Simulated scan of single mutants.
Amino acid sequence: MPTENRTARLTILIDPRKKAVFERLCAGEDATPSQVVRRLIRDYIEQRSGRPWHAENDPAEKSTPTSGNPHARAR
């Protein structure tokens, strides 16, 4: 799989204790926290879009019936 373009930054605030546990668990699987977060985001995108993620085939660029708010319900 080709390397993705990693130029966007995501900053989050979390509880310091959760961060410490997360970093320890990541180290236990020989992964960086960034690698794990990227995997979690990719998995989330795949679950919500119903399609495998391909960086060159960004689902956000295609029109979908649920465009806009992904949590909005049809009325």
Rank of each mutant, 00 (worst) to 15 (best):
R51G: 08
A55K: 09
R48M: 04
Q47I: 00
N5Y: 15
N5A: 14
P70N: 11
P65V: 02
M1S: 08
R38V: 04
R17A: 11
E4V: 14
P65F: 15
V36T: 00
Q35V: 03
C26Q: 04
R75G: 10
A55M: 10
Y44H: 07
R6F: 04
S34M: 07
I41M: 13
R39Y: 06
N57H: 14
G68I: 01
E56I: 11
T11L: 08
R75L: 08
R38M: 06
E56Y: 13
D15S: 08
R24N: 00
S63T: 12
P2F: 15
E56A: 15
R38D: 07
A31N: 01
I14K: 02
T32I: 05
H54D: 09
V21A: 10
P52D: 01
F22P: 00
R51H: 11
A72I: 03
I14Q: 05
K62W: 14
H54V: 13
Y44E: 03
S63A: 15
V21C: 09
E56M: 15
W53E: 01
W53N: 05
Q47P: 00
R9T: 12
D43T: 08
G28F: 02
E4R: 11
L10F: 10
A74F: 13
E46T: 09
E4K: 12
P16Y: 03
P52C: 02
E4M: 13
D15A: 15
